[in-house]
Nucleic acid binder design. Structure first.
Lengths: 236, 236
DNA sequence: TAACATGCATGATTTTTGTCATGTTTTGAA
DNA sequence: TTCAAAACATGACAAAAATCATGCATGTTA
């Protein structure tokens, strides 16, 4: 369905200015360019599975990916949403463990794979990149801690509003400027919010009744962002 | 009340084999040793405050510290519990932001402070330490993600049981082998679990009735760990 | 196109959890 | 030691959220 043209080189990649790797030294980028393997994952396909061993990191060229955990009772919890320029798989690699989450394409997605040995060796020889990685990890840790606090303290209504805004921040709008440019099922939204699917459906209907959103199947339009922000009860 | 004798040198510090810094090269350890500043914080005193700028990292020599966030409505959420050998303050430093949490001593605690510039420069020149930091960040991120999932999916009863086990893992028992060696208020336990104080009090009473714990003010004894693990409904 | 599965929607009900009120105990400071 | 404040405990109630049940729409496959 969707068609990508091979980025061919990291030097010409659309993400060369946005990914963490943009801070790596030229010589290493060349090396990565030689060893990287590009692949296309169709919607629903898995990049890697929770529980298996990492053998490299993935860099999204174009597309959308969800990163999700399985809870002890088998329920999905979506941990992160990723887009072009994002790197994934580094957490498990750096702490020397199996993947603690699965990565699944939300739409057809083009991904470059960088082998473990190369990644580690570049990281060893390029202090700048190492600092970028530490910054990335620190930022993710921060986000996780904030999310944790909200999960513990905010009611579902606020969290759903916050999640819609988060989706908008992450993937933005379609060309009409109001439709969220990702199709998520109600269940996926619920697994992002951390609640039951029915609660999510009900609250979305309420948001629609209140005129904050418009619903058309999986298409969600944000009509009144300010109202949503108020509903989310955000401080910053 | 409590008396510490100055560790004098990093080379003789009780934590020299457990902290991340143990992997740093000798020359850097010497440098840290010269520039570090040791301090004692009394119970309840603050090492640093959410919202202020970091100017270094803290290394706990002996004692206990809680790291907590304020939610948007001002309610405390305890993010992490720290003990001797743990480092803190690096997250904000590495991502170049203000502290996103406050650190408060849970009992009289001895802490070494390492200035920002030194920490960064050692990190730049010691790849091993940089990797240790990445591993540390990755581990923390992992823990945060698991906690997030549990917070979203598990009922409070399970989370309280899990929290008691977590406290035990972190701080261990007193010499009697059953009393948790930290005194936390019910409110603090609630802020760790992510629930209302009353719910925590009620459930602790239930646990007591079920014979899993014994309560004597802030002293909590774990009588049946296996039952607790079952109650926590943990997989691993 | 029929048959089926899946996702969406909504009502009814139950369970869980939080809040409010009140009393008791403990703690710490004067 | 005494008193006030804080922490603990518990009951009653309200609110929030999950679960169960059912129906409708949509899409998919034989």
């Amino acid at each position: 369905m969707t068609h990508f043209h091979d980025p061919t080189t990291c030097q010409s990649c659309a993400q060369r200015f946005t990914s963490v790797f943009c801070k790596a030294k030229q010589e290493f980028i060349s090396e990565i360019n030689e060893q990287k393997i590009c692949n296309i994952y169709k919607k629903g396909q898995t990049l890697f599975n929770e529980g298996s061993y990492p053998f490299g990191v993935y860099c999204i060229n174009d597309g959308k990916v969800k990163l999700s955990h399985l809870g002890d009772d088998g329920k999905e919890q979506i941990i992160r949403l990723l887009r072009g320029g994002d790197v994934l798989g580094y957490r498990a690699l750096l702490s020397g463990e199996r993947y603690s989450a699965s990565a699944i394409a939300l739409e057809d997605t083009q991904v470059c794979f960088i082998p473990k040995e190369l990644f580690i060796s570049v990281l060893k020889n390029d202090t700048g990149l190492a600092f970028e990685m530490m910054k990335l990890l620190s930022d993710e840790l921060h986000k996780a801690e904030v999310k944790l606090t909200h999960l513990a303290q905010k009611p579902i209504r606020e969290r759903l509003a916050e999640t819609l805004l988060f989706i908008k921040e992450t993937y933005g709008y379609e060309s009409d400027g109001i439709t969220l440019s990702v199709r998520l099922s109600r269940e996926e939204i619920a697994n992002l919010v951390g609640t039951a699917t029915e609660s999510t459906i009900r609250l979305l209907s309420e948001f629609k009744k209140d005129g904050m959103v418009e619903l058309d199947g999986k298409k969600i339009k944000i009509l009144r962002q300010k109202e949503l922000i108020k509903t989310a009860n955000l401080q910053d």
